[in-house]
């Protein structure tokens, strides 16, 4: 509820105000070239933007600007998540790419300090 109130109070949807990723261009932006830590941080950022956009769309399902922004974010998310699954281990239980190892049970788990440094 607090999230929805925040969106409403900010006066509607402005994708330009949220284009954080565009404000910091990466010289070597291809997901395959970045470290696991960087990739995961990026995923956290994009996923958060998606959550906020989804909550906005729940309240304003007819907002075309929000829906376009949503699709842009989701496409970016897909490529990030795939790169993480390939390179760093599964982010979700159906993302275990290895046919010889079950990496899903590998640490560190998200609440451990090592997973957040």
């Amino acid at each position: 509820m607090a999230d929805m109130m925040r969106n409403y109070r900010s006066g509607g949807f402005n994708p330009r105000a949220i284009a954080v990723n565009e404000m910091r261009p990466d010289n070597d932006a291809r997901p395959q070239m970045q470290s696991c830590q960087k990739l995961k941080r990026k995923l956290q950022t994009v996923d958060f933007a998606i959550i906020e956009t989804v909550l906005y769309l729940d309240a304003y399902p007819n907002c075309r600007a929000a829906l376009d922004y949503y699709h842009k974010l989701v496409a970016e998310r897909e490529s990030l998540a795939n790169a993480i699954n390939e390179k760093c281990g599964p982010i979700c239980h159906r993302g275990n790419k290895s046919r010889t190892e079950w990496n899903w049970v590998d640490g560190p788990w998200p609440w451990e300090l090592d997973a957040n440094s």
Binding site: K40, R41, L43, Q44, D47, F48, I51, P90, I91, C92, H93, R94, W104, W109, P110, W111, L113, A115, N116, S117
Partner: peptide
């Protein structure tokens, strides 16, 4: 529900 192996936002408490 599906679980994703990451926190929504990082938690880094050293002490």
């Amino acid at each position: 529900w599906i679980y994703e192996k990451k926190l929504e936002y990082p938690v880094k408490i050293k002490n």
